[in-house]
């Protein structure tokens, strides 16, 4: 298990602040956050590239904080893969084993097995310069995994790939992690990518971790406004709570909550249902006019001019036009109420 406790680092213009994170053995964790959040810096601290000012990094209970990168046994795959251009693919993959002064026969056997596992036999004698993005990624993974690292750090490993290849490589990456039962930390800035690979996510902003959990947990219960916005919860409003209802704009939502006073209300668009029966007069049922409807690949995004305006996702093929009357229902349990001071 990897445990990071109160990690602080100062890189002049950028500070890493009070990082606390646990990654279980065999777990795939995605670190998410906007550009400049400090994801890459955190990974570089874990790899040992920078020396931390405060805090500890523990791997299986052993404090590796004072160790140099070559003593940590933590694999690192940077964004551009950094394949050594002076070595062939096979030599790149063998590099870590040669550094450990393993016998040549053993190196050959491990490297051949890795090459076969990654299905890159056809490029093993080629130089990295002549490889495609996907091939480079597989070679970089192979190079990092041959040394059986206790943790593999992947810094935006899919960002250099086109959309189709990215999805395919994400699947393969996940499969590979399961095959080797490795502990992976994967940096990315899209939650779609994280959802393809990760067991859990950690959301970062401004040099600190804001929230960790499964993707569903973070989406359903964002800790603050930043998380809600980052996870694309499009209905985010400031309101007033009395403990059993929350008033946002001219709308009163029924939702029991422990707060009284100013609150932040978050409702995911996919959690708002369109009611077909006009006689439905239940709790949190509102009618309004369609302000805008955009057809997306798997759903229709509809803006409804209730006060305040709501955005909903309709998974059906039904076509909505501007000005159409629409009735929506918001299940109380799907309304997230956050105390405003936390936001």
């Amino acid at each position: 298990m990897i445990e990071i406790a109160n990690l602080n680092g100062n890189l002049g213009e950028f500070h890493l602040r009070d990082i606390n994170l646990k990654v279980n053995k065999g777990e795939y964790l995605a670190i998410l956050g906007p550009t400049g959040a400090g994801k890459t810096v955190l990974v570089e601290y874990i790899a040992g590239i920078y020396k931390s000012d405060k805090g500890n990094i523990l791997v299986d209970g052993e404090d590796i904080t004072p160790l140099y990168p070559e003593e940590r046994n933590i694999g690192y795959v940077p964004q551009d893969y950094a394949l050594f251009p002076n070595l062939t693919v096979k030599k790149n993959i063998a590099y870590g084993l040669e550094a450990r002064r393993m016998p040549p026969e053993q190196i050959n056997s491990i490297v051949s097995e890795m090459i076969s596992r990654l299905k890159i036999e056809y490029i093993q004698h080629r130089m990295p310069l002549n490889l495609s993005g996907g091939e480079k990624q597989r070679v970089a993974l192979g190079r990092a995994l041959t040394t059986e690292p206790k943790l593999l750090l992947l810094d935006e490993p899919l960002s250099a790939l086109d959309e189709n290849l990215r999805m395919e490589m994400a699947r393969k990456l996940r499969q590979l992690q399961r095959d080797v039962n490795g502990t992976f930390i994967h940096v990315c800035h899209s939650f779609e990518e994280a959802s393809d690979v990760a067991d859990r996510i950690a959301l970062m902003n401004d040099g600190t971790i804001i929230q960790t959990g499964t993707l569903k947990e973070v989406m359903e219960a964002p800790k603050n406004e930043f998380v809600a916005r980052f996870m694309k919860s499009q209905n985010i409003f400031y309101g007033l709570s009395d403990g059993s209802t929350v008033k946002i704009g001219k709308t009163v939502l029924f939702r029991k909550n422990p707060f009284k006073g100013d609150v932040l209300v978050v409702i995911r668009p996919e959690n708002i249902a369109i009611v077909e029966n006009e006689n439905n007069k239940g709790q949190n049922v509102f009618s309004g006019k369609v302000e805008n409807a955009k057809r997306k690949p798997y759903f229709t995004e509809i803006a409804v001019d209730i006060n305040p305006p709501f955005v909903i996702y309709s998974p059906t093929e039904k076509k909505y036009n501007k000005g159409d009357n629409i009735i929506i229902s918001i299940p109380p349990e799907k309304i997230v109420v956050i105390e405003k001071s936390d936001s």
Partner: peptide, 29 residues
Amino acid sequence: IPVRFEAVSHSLGASPLRTFFKVVLPMAK
């Protein structure tokens, strides 16, 4: 030469001296 190459070499267990002779020097050739 981007320092990432050295970082990767170190992460693979290579000492600074080995990294210099096996990675940096050939790349700077």
